[in-house]
């Protein structure tokens, strides 16, 4: 496959995230970057990827990118539409879903995720974020977790202000001690490269760079002393095909639109 000229770091991030999903896997998809990447994977190398949305849509095959996790196109194209209690109790909780695909407002060196509040004071937060949604149990119960998030020092912090979803807690053994059934984060894909937990320390370290990014760029964008693997590889840039499909998908986001009434 030929590499494409002229792509953005966001596009590289989405392409790298899509490549992290194996064909045939059942994937619990959050809205935003994860949904875009999962749909790109399904439209390229993983046509049998099973998309599970928390609205109860199992096996959705949308031809256009949804704006929300409950757009009609997700129900119309699903293998089954089940209730919300069912999707969490019968499908997520027993570990039937292979990959949980999440984003984060803050992420720390042990891949814990914050989507609740920024600031030390929960009652008087600097920024009130949307909250947990499905993420705590997705992070706990999926067989493994893939995180896709833009990298900067505000997001990549030493310790998250609030643990909304557990990665590796405070380090090795914490997931087992807490009784979390899934293996936890496998990879964190950013607009600069890829971070993976060290097999012994569970601490995230840089293992791959996107073309054009440097180790120094990633260190600058990380709020802790980032470990770097001995042999940092460089990802393949987006292929022409990946880029064409991604851009065509982005152009469909939130369509079809109806009733042109705007506030």
């Amino acid at each position: 496959m030929s590499a494409a000229a002229g792509w953005t770091s966001d596009e590289m991030m989405t392409v790298a995230a899509s490549r992290a999903l194996d064909d045939g896997t059942a994937c619990f998809v959050g809205i935003g970057l994860p949904s875009t990447a999962a749909n790109l994977a399904r439209a390229t190398h993983a046509p049998h990827l099973v998309l599970v949305y928390e609205s109860g849509c199992l096996g959705s095959k949308p031809g256009a990118l949804p704006l929300s996790i409950g757009d009609g196109i997700l129900a119309d194209t699903a293998d089954a539409v089940v209730s919300v209690p069912e999707v969490f109790n019968y499908w997520l909780q027993p570990g039937r879903i292979g990959v949980g695909f999440l984003s984060a407002a803050q992420l720390d060196r042990f891949a814990n995720i914050n989507t609740t509040v920024v600031g030390d004071d929960y009652l008087h937060p600097k920024v009130r974020l949307p909250g947990a949604g499905g993420a705590p149990e997705i992070a706990a119960s999926c067989q493994e977790v893939v995180v896709v998030v833009r990298q900067n020092p505000r997001t990549f912090v030493e310790r998250v202000d609030f643990v909304t979803s557990v990665g590796f807690g405070s380090g090795p053994g914490d997931r087992e001690r807490l009784g979390l059934t899934g293996r936890g984060p496998r990879t964190v894909i950013t607009d600069l490269g890829v971070l993976e937990p060290h097999p012994e320390s569970c601490e995230l370290r840089l293992t791959r760079l996107h073309p054009g990014a440097t180790v120094e760029d990633v260190r600058q964008a990380t709020g802790w002393q980032l470990e770097v693997a001995d042999d940092v590889a460089v990802n393949e840039p987006p292929t022409r095909h990946e880029l064409e499909v991604l851009r065509a998908l982005e152009a469909t986001k939130g369509t079809p639109r109806h009733r042109k009434q705007t506030p």
Partner: peptide, 13 residues
């Protein structure tokens, strides 16, 4: 009853 929240700061809050 569910498997949920374990290890999160929601438990204390």
């Amino acid at each position: 009853v569910l498997r949920g929240y374990t290890g999160t700061d929601l438990v204390a809050r």
